[in-house]
Computed example of a mutant assay.
Amino acid sequence: MSKLTLNSYPHMLGFEQLERLLERSAKSGNEGYPPYNIEQTSDHSYRITLAVAGFAEEDLVITVEDRQLVIRGRQRDDSEGRIFLHRGIAARQFQRMFVLADGVEVGEAVMENGLLHVDLTRAVPQSVVQTINIRKG
């Protein structure tokens, strides 16, 4: 079976970057931690919610790098001088990446009850009709 690519559709011009974004997203290495939700909050806005219990605001870094939203978490090791009889809550680091389409902007991030909410908005493209003049050659 041959691999289906956007190049298979000659009427789809200028979408080569979309194929690269899909490949990069598939290789992003996102593991199952932390769990997250993505919800559509209006016709042009979204919210990503990550379960980051145990992380403080200063343990989290949110950046946009090359049209990718990257959320990183690294907890400080505060176990010095403590004796654990059982340690089931591991202090682990994570990196979650989300590929953003052109026109999607990252809004505010809010930490609430162990959940990190990141709001996104998509600019509504204006409908433009352009008439191209034909000149004699």
Results as ranks from 00 to 15, higher is better:
Met1Glu: 13
Ser2His: 13
Lys3His: 08
Leu4Cys: 13
Thr5Trp: 06
Leu6Val: 11
Asn7Pro: 08
Asn7Phe: 14
Asn7Gln: 15
Tyr9Asn: 10
Tyr9Phe: 14
Tyr9Pro: 05
Pro10His: 12
Pro10Met: 12
Pro10Arg: 14
His11Pro: 00
Gly14Phe: 03
Leu18Lys: 10
Leu18Ile: 14
Glu19Ser: 02
Arg20Gln: 11
Arg20Cys: 02
Leu21Lys: 13
Glu23Gly: 08
Glu23Val: 11
Arg24Phe: 08
Arg24Gln: 12
Ser25Leu: 09
Ser25Tyr: 12
Lys27Cys: 08
Ser28Trp: 02
Ser28Cys: 01
Gly29Glu: 05
Glu31Asp: 13
Gly32Ser: 09
Tyr33Leu: 01
Tyr33Phe: 06
Pro34Glu: 03
Pro35Phe: 12
Pro35Trp: 13
Tyr36Val: 09
Asn37Met: 14
Ile38Ala: 04
Gln40Trp: 09
Asp43Thr: 13
Asp43Lys: 11
His44Tyr: 15
His44Phe: 14
His44Gln: 15
Ser45Arg: 06
Ile48Met: 05
Ile48Gly: 02
Thr49Asn: 02
Leu50Tyr: 00
Ala51Glu: 13
Ala51Trp: 09
Val52His: 01
Val52Gln: 02
Ala53Ser: 15
Ala53Glu: 15
Gly54Ala: 03
Glu57Thr: 13
Glu58Asp: 12
Glu58Pro: 01
Glu58His: 11
Glu58Met: 04
Asp59Leu: 01
Leu60Pro: 00
Leu60Cys: 01
Ile62Arg: 03
Val64Phe: 03
Asp66Ala: 05
Asp66Pro: 00
Asp66Thr: 05
Gln68Tyr: 07
Gln68Ser: 07
Gln68His: 10
Leu69Ser: 00
Arg72Gln: 06
Arg72Thr: 08
Arg74Gly: 05
Arg74Asp: 06
Gln75His: 06
Asp77Met: 02
Asp77Lys: 03
Asp78Leu: 07
Ser79Asp: 09
Glu80Cys: 00
Glu80Ser: 04
Arg82Val: 11
Ile83Met: 12
Phe84Asn: 07
Gly88Arg: 10
Gly88Cys: 07
Ala90Leu: 11
Ala91Gly: 12
Arg92Trp: 05
Arg92Phe: 03
Arg92Cys: 03
Gln93His: 11
Phe94His: 02
Arg96Val: 04
Arg96Phe: 05
Phe98Val: 04
Phe98Trp: 04
Val99Gln: 10
Leu100Ser: 00
Asp102Pro: 07
Val104His: 03
Gly107Ser: 04
Glu108Thr: 10
Met111Ser: 05
Asn113Lys: 12
Gly114Pro: 01
Leu115Lys: 08
Leu115Trp: 09
Leu116Arg: 00
His117Thr: 01
Val118Ala: 01
Thr121Trp: 06
Thr121Ser: 13
Arg122Trp: 10
Arg122Glu: 14
Ala123Trp: 08
Gln126Ser: 12
Ser127Glu: 15
Ser127Thr: 15
Ser127Leu: 15
Ser127Tyr: 15
Val128Glu: 08
Val129Asp: 13
Thr131Gln: 11
Thr131Gly: 06
Ile134Trp: 13
Ile134Met: 09
Lys136Arg: 15
Lys136Asp: 15
Lys136Trp: 13
Gly137Asn: 15
Gly137Tyr: 11
